[in-house]
Amino acid sequence: MANEKEIRTKIRSVKNMQKITKAMEMVAASKIRKAQDQMEASRPYAERIRRVIGHLGNANPDYKHPWLVEREVKRVGYIIISTDRGLCGGLNVNMFKTAIGELQKWKSQNVEVDLSLVGAKAVQFFRRLGGNVVGTATHLGDKPHVNDLIGAIKLMLDSYSEGRIDRLFLVHNEFVSTMSQKPEVKSLLPVSAIDLGEETLQDHWDYIYEPEATELLDDVLMRYIESQVYRGAVENFACEMAAKMVAMKSATDNAGDIIEELQLIYNKARQASITQEISEIVGGAAAVSG
């Protein structure tokens, strides 16, 4: 039987761990709220820019921007958004599973895949398993900025413009609720008409364009894609915090269970040693008196 002192030390160390997981749980819980606000804050921009693109598309019905035209698929691009840090349960694993499923699907069609990775976990994952990674963006911190993502996105957009890839997708976790997050694959390029809600645009008036609508379209489309990826990054961060909160909560509960069990063992060990001492004293006394 383990001795009392050993068990006591163990209990103390588990208690310390529990304190840490509890603190992480609370920190994550407070960050969820902020991340959700950030998600909400990005919505007006995306909606407006979508409306503007709709107008631009209507302005020159004959001109088709290459980003709006569907073409034969020979090679595809994926922007994969993961978390920067771990300790968030099965969040990244589930997302990678979806991503790998996608890669498998393209492979079976003999289509090659380029990857652009956001988040240190994705970089780690593909470093181990290989992959044609063209760009990365890591260490976005608690508040992702569009600025940090521009490079990784531009690489893919350029690839598309130059015809190296024929479709572009985004993989990230979708925030369903605090208890549930699910991986989502979204098509970014070509931008489909449905995404832009063109059917709702039947106004008679039109803008004056300065400079030409075709030129403006370039700028607007790029910002549209960027805002989509940015939203993905913010949403993924909200997911990370939610998953972390749940994971840390169960870790705290588990630590509580372990402490309880250890306490029982400790009590038993203490009882045993007391019993032994008493029996030794009684035995000793008996020997003296006998």
Binding site: L103, G135, A137
Partner: peptide
């Protein structure tokens, strides 16, 4: 910025093959 992202990728994935080991990835996941 694009160049930076590209360099980061090259730095982080030095010596990694261009082909994702799908079978192993699925197994691990």
């Amino acid at each position: 910025a694009a160049l930076q992202a590209q360099q980061d990728a090259e730095e982080a994935l030095k010596g990694v093959s261009g082909e994702t080991d799908l079978a192993r990835a699925q197994l691990e996941l």
